[in-house]
Amino acid sequence: MPYLYRDNGARRAAETRKRILDAALRCFAAGGYEGTSMRQLAECCGLTDAALYYHFESKQALMEALLRERWGCLAAPRPEPDTARRPSGALAHLIDLILDRWAEHADYLRVLAREAHTSALARELYARIADEWADSMTALLAGRLHRDDAARIARSVRYAVVGVLFTGLQEHGAAFAELARQPAFRDHVHALVRAVAPVERFEAIPAAQ
């Protein structure tokens, strides 16, 4: 049954590819692009150099694939529009979902921020992620506030959130993922968001009952 064999081979290749990308994410986050060699990566995955090069022709190609294929994990969550929730509660819920993403994908964020210094691709992907977060916040608030107010509040929140995120990644490095799970840290982020997003002051559209 030649087809079955071929399918198994393709599946194994896809699994190996995923294993390489997982290891590359950890190594690049910890050591940076320059500080990580293809040999180290091969060792991390338990592969020979030749096997690694079979999947990715160069370190550059591996980094590109990593950035392109994994950015979707940070795309903004789109919470169900919940009309029963007040805008401030809905915003807090969205912030919680974003904090979950930080905890889960801190390595990707570190790699992206490091690479953005010299990689146009990393800059483009950052812009997409940041715009998605802002659009998601605007959409969430748009039903309850005037559109301009929703957009301006979303902007302030987005900047504050980007500031907290990248300050945290600098100061805590690999420990940031753990920090993003801690209730005290999350409470503090919520307090900061409330300070920059006084949605109650802007509530102008009567809530639907």
């Binding site: 953005a116 940041a130 302030s156 987005r158 900047y159 959130v161 900061l192």
Partner: peptide
């Protein structure tokens, strides 16, 4: 954080 986020956001977009 807003100020640092604005500067960071712009650096990540256009260096």
């Amino acid at each position: 954080y807003v100020v640092s986020g604005m500067v960071t956001d712009a650096i990540l977009r256009i260096g």
